Lab assay of single mutants.
Amino acid sequence: GNIFIKNLHPDIDNKALYDTFSVFGDILSSKIATDENGKSKGFGFVHFEEEGAAKEAIDALNGMLLNGQEIYVAP
C-alpha cells in the first residue's frame, strides 16, 4: 500500500522517513520529494509491501509530531 506524508520537517531525510515507518511493516520504497538543490519540499511517499501495514501507519501516525511538526499521513 502507498501512503503520502506531508508537512515534514526539513531535517527529515529518506533514512528518517524509512526508520519512522518501517516499524509498521516491510517497505518497498520510501522517498522525500526534493528540489533541484536536494532540499526537502516537505512531503514524501512510502510504499509498503502489505496494504494492512499502510493502514496501520496512517492510523498511528496521522497528526503525530515528527521533529516538532504535526505530520499528515494519508493513502
Rank of each mutant, 00 (worst) to 15 (best):
G1V: 03
N2T: 00
N2G: 01
I3M: 08
F4R: 01
I5R: 00
K6A: 04
N7G: 09
N7H: 11
N7V: 04
N7F: 08
H9Y: 08
P10L: 14
D11P: 03
D11T: 08
D11Q: 10
D13H: 10
N14D: 09
N14Q: 09
N14C: 06
K15S: 06
A16E: 04
L17R: 00
Y18V: 05
D19Y: 10
D19K: 12
T20Y: 04
F21M: 14
F21L: 14
F21N: 03
F21P: 02
F21I: 11
S22Y: 08
V23E: 10
F24V: 04
G25R: 00
G25F: 00
G25V: 00
D26Q: 15
L28Q: 07
L28E: 02
L28I: 04
S29C: 04
S30T: 05
S30G: 08
K31D: 00
K31G: 01
I32S: 04
I32P: 01
I32F: 03
A33G: 08
A33V: 12
T34V: 14
T34F: 08
D35V: 09
E36Y: 14
E36L: 10
N37A: 13
N37S: 12
N37F: 14
G38S: 10
G38W: 07
K39L: 09
K39D: 10
K41N: 05
K41D: 04
F43R: 03
V46L: 04
H47T: 01
H47K: 03
H47Y: 02
H47F: 02
H47R: 02
H47Q: 07
F48M: 05
F48L: 07
F48D: 00
E49S: 10
E50S: 12
E51T: 11
E51S: 07
E51A: 10
G52P: 10
G52T: 09
G52H: 12
A53T: 12
A54E: 04
A54R: 06
K55Q: 13
K55Y: 10
E56K: 08
E56H: 10
E56T: 11
E56F: 04
I58G: 06
A60F: 07
L61P: 03
N62R: 14
N62D: 12
G63E: 11
G63L: 05
L65W: 08
L66F: 13
L66Q: 06
N67H: 07
G68W: 06
Q69T: 15
Q69K: 14
E70Y: 11
E70N: 12
I71M: 14
Y72L: 06
V73L: 14
V73I: 15
V73C: 11
V73P: 01
V73F: 03
P75Q: 15
